[in-house]
C-alpha cells in the first residue's frame, strides 16, 4: 500500500492549528498534521511532548481548545469518542484498557458493536436481525482472532494473558470495528525485541491490507523501520514532519532528543 508517491494519495486525517490548554499549561500548541490514505504515520517526541494528548484530541477524548481535526474533510473536533468510532477510526490505549474479566472472544465481539443493529425487540424475540447479527459477530470475531493468532486463547479471560498478547487483543478488538484508520498508542511498550519484531510485521501486513495506521512509539528503530512519514512533537509543539531519513537528519529533532551541547560538539 505504501505508494512511492505519497503526495498522490488522498488526505484522510488532518489537524489544523490544534491547541489544547489545561489551565495555564499549553499541552498542545498549534499543531498541524496531514495523514494520507495508506500511510504508516509515526508520532514521536520525548516524554511529556504531548503525543498521547494529541492522540486523545484526534479520537475525541478531549475537545481541542482551538483548531480543527478533519476526517475526510469533515470537522470532527469536539465529537465524542463513540461518534468518532462510528466514523471508522479505531484506537488502542497506552495503558492497556481491556475488558479484563471477559473472554478474549467477548472483547472482540464488543468491537463488532457498531456494525450490528440488534435492538431490544430483536433480542427478545430473536428476530432475523438478531440471528444475522449474532452470526456476523461470531464469524467476524473468530476470523480476526485467527488472523492475529489468538484463536487458541479465545475462551480465556483477557486479563490472564501475558502483556504482549493483551496488546494484540486490543488491536484485534479495534480491528473488529472494521476501521479505515487505526491509531496505536505505544503498541510495543513492554514487549521484548522478538514480540516487537512480530508486531512490526503485523502492522505492515495490516497496512498492506489497506488500513491506514498512526502509531505513537518510543522505540526509534521500530518507528524508523515501519513508518513512511513522521511527526515530531516537543513541549506540545510540532518541530518537524517528514520522511524518516529527513527526520534523522533534522537539526531540531536532534537537539530535542540529544540536547544542544552534544549536537554542537558532535
Amino acid at each position: 500500500m505504501m505508494s512511492k508517491n505519497r503526495a498522490d494519495a488522498p488526505v484522510l486525517l488532518e489537524a489544523r492549528g490544534v491547541c489544547k490548554y489545561f489551565g495555564g499549561l499549553k499541552a498542545i500548541e498549534n499543531v498541524d498534521m496531514t495523514i494520507r490514505k495508506g500511510d504508516v504515520f509515526g508520532i514521536i517526541g520525548p516524554n511529556g511532548a504531548g503525543k498521547t494528548t494529541f492522540f486523545n484530541i484526534c479520537t475525541g477524548v478531549f475537545a481541542p481548545t482551538k483548531g480543527e481535526i478533519l476526517l475526510h474533510g469533515e470537522n470532527i473536533a469536539g465529537l465524542t469518542p463513540e461518534e468518532i468510532a462510528r466514523k471508522r477510526m479505531a484506537r488502542t490505549f497506552q495503558n492497556i484498557q481491556l475488558f479484563k474479566f471477559m473472554s478474549v472472544l467477548e472483547n472482540v465481539q464488543i468491537g463488532c458493536h457498531i456494525n450490528t443493529k440488534t435492538r431490544m425487540f430483536d433480542a427478545v424475540f430473536q428476530t432475523k436481525t438478531y440471528k444475522k447479527d449474532e452470526q456476523y459477530i461470531a464469524e467476524r470475531s473468530m476470523d480476526i482472532l485467527q488472523k492475529i493468532g489468538l484463536e487458541e486463547f479465545a475462551e480465556m479471560k483477557a486479563g490472564n494473558l501475558p502483556y504482549g498478547s493483551q496488546r494484540k487483543v486490543e488491536i484485534a478488538r479495534a480491528l473488529a470495528l472494521d476501521p479505515e484508520i487505526l491509531l496505536l498508542d505505544e503498541p510495543a511498550a513492554g514487549m521484548n525485541p522478538n514480540e516487537t519484531m512480530e508486531l512490526r510485521e503485523f502492522i505492515l501486513q495490516l497496512n498492506e491490507a489497506g488500513y491506514t495506521i498512526v502509531v505513537i512509539e518510543h522505540d526509534m528503530k521500530f518507528i524508523m523501520n515501519s513508518c513512511n512519514h513522521i511527526l515530531v512533537l516537543n513541549f506540545g509543539q510540532k518541530i518537524f514532519e517528514g520522511a524518516p531519513e529527513q527526520v534523522k537528519a533534522n537539526h531540531d529533532v536532534q537537539v530535542a532528543y540529544f540536547g544542544k551541547g552534544i549536537i554542537a560538539r558532535g
Binding site: 477524548v61 475488558f99 471477559m102 465481539q109 464488543i110 458493536h113 440488534t118
Partner: peptide, 29 residues
C-alpha cells in the same frame, strides 16, 4: 437472559468493565 445474550447485554457489561474502552469501540455509553 435473551437481552444479555445480545449486543445490548454485552454493551452493558462492557460499560461495567471499562467504560473508556467501550466508548472507543463505539458503544454509546
Amino acid at each position: 437472559s435473551r437481552i444479555l445474550r445480545s449486543r445490548i447485554g454485552r454493551a452493558w457489561i462492557s460499560i461495567r468493565e471499562e467504560s473508556n474502552a467501550a466508548r472507543s469501540l463505539g458503544v454509546e455509553i
